[in-house]
Simulated assay, not measured.
Amino acid sequence: MAGHSNARLVMFGSSVTGFSYRAGTSFDTGGKSDYDLAVVSPRLYEAALTAGAQRRAGGRTEPIGPRSRVAKNIKLKTMLESLHDLSGRKVSIMIYRDWTFLTTRGPYRILP
């Protein structure tokens, strides 16, 4: 993935379950839902922090969007822009140090 051979891309949130965690409504009720993605990679996690990403609890970064300088610096900008263009949805990504915390955040799907 974008030159990060040890990284795994994961989709989570309402796009996986079909329902909003907060509101309990179906995906896209009241507007177009966004896609929440995660990448699990210790090396990419450290690179993102070095590039200026903010650290969040549980060994993850803040959400990183396609316009962020962090996305550009860690070579994820083009991928995020492409996903936005293809889906017509807001796309952001959080980078996790390891699987420990991600698996506690609810249903997820590992993408090929």
Rank of each mutant, 00 (worst) to 15 (best):
A2M: 06
A2K: 03
G3I: 02
H4V: 05
H4Q: 03
H4R: 13
S5R: 08
A7D: 02
R8V: 12
R8N: 13
M11G: 08
M11L: 14
M11A: 15
F12R: 06
G13I: 04
G13R: 07
S14Q: 11
S14I: 11
S15W: 06
S15H: 09
V16A: 04
V16N: 07
T17S: 14
G18V: 04
G18N: 06
G18W: 00
S20G: 14
R22D: 12
R22E: 14
A23Q: 11
A23P: 00
T25Y: 05
T25M: 11
T25A: 09
S26N: 07
F27M: 10
F27Q: 01
T29N: 09
G30M: 14
G30K: 03
G31K: 06
G31E: 00
G31C: 05
G31Q: 02
G31R: 12
G31T: 07
G31S: 06
K32E: 12
K32N: 07
K32T: 14
K32I: 14
S33T: 02
D36W: 08
V39P: 07
V39L: 14
V39T: 04
V39S: 05
V40L: 05
S41P: 10
P42W: 00
R43T: 15
R43L: 15
R43C: 08
L44R: 04
Y45P: 01
E46W: 06
A48D: 01
T50N: 14
A51P: 04
A51S: 15
A51E: 08
A51Q: 11
G52W: 05
G52L: 11
A53W: 00
A53L: 03
A53H: 03
A53Y: 03
A53F: 01
A53C: 00
Q54T: 11
Q54K: 14
Q54W: 08
R55F: 07
R55N: 10
G59P: 09
R60I: 11
R60F: 01
T61F: 12
E62D: 11
E62M: 10
I64D: 02
P66Q: 13
R67C: 11
S68N: 05
R69V: 09
V70Y: 04
K72I: 05
N73H: 11
I74M: 02
K75M: 15
K77M: 06
K77W: 09
T78G: 13
M79Y: 14
L80R: 11
E81Q: 13
S82W: 07
H84D: 03
H84G: 14
D85V: 12
L86K: 12
S87L: 08
S87Q: 10
S87K: 11
G88A: 03
R89A: 09
K90H: 10
I93G: 08
M94A: 07
M94N: 09
I95F: 09
Y96E: 03
Y96N: 06
Y96C: 12
Y96H: 15
R97M: 10
R97I: 09
R97Y: 13
W99L: 02
T100H: 10
F101E: 13
F101Q: 12
F101V: 04
L102P: 06
L102K: 07
T103V: 08
R105Q: 10
G106W: 02
G106N: 05
G106D: 04
P107H: 05
Y108I: 09
Y108T: 06
R109A: 14
I110G: 01
I110K: 10
L111K: 10
P112Q: 03
